[in-house]
């Protein structure tokens, strides 16, 4: 039962960070919220018992955040 409550909280946080990352006006804030989305995905994978998938998601989340910030550095505008 406790695990179910934690899973529900994590899924709600996952959905909330996803929606805010999609609707944010600032592109840098959107990228950072996407990093948060990746972090909650890691916690969700861990709590359902997939440690290997969680590890892969953690390292790929870091690298994809670096890539998105580097691509944003090339853009002229910072807002949507």
């Amino acid at each position: 039962m406790h695990v179910f409550i934690i899973e529900t909280i994590l899924l709600l946080l996952l959905i909330a960070t996803g929606i805010f990352a999609l609707t944010s006006k600032d592109l840098l804030a959107s990228i950072i919220l996407f990093g948060g989305f990746s972090y909650f995905a890691v916690l969700t994978y861990l709590i359902v018992g997939a440690a290997d998938v969680a590890f892969t998601e953690a390292v790929v989340g870091v690298v994809s955040t670096i890539y998105l910030v580097t691509a944003l550095n090339k853009l002229k505008r910072r807002c949507r």
Binding site: A51, D52, A54, F55, T56, V59, V60, V62, V63
Partner: peptide, 9 residues
């Protein structure tokens, strides 16, 4: 847990 892909990343 771990392996080639995670170590490379």
């Amino acid at each position: 847990p771990g392996g080639g892909f995670q170590a490379g990343t």
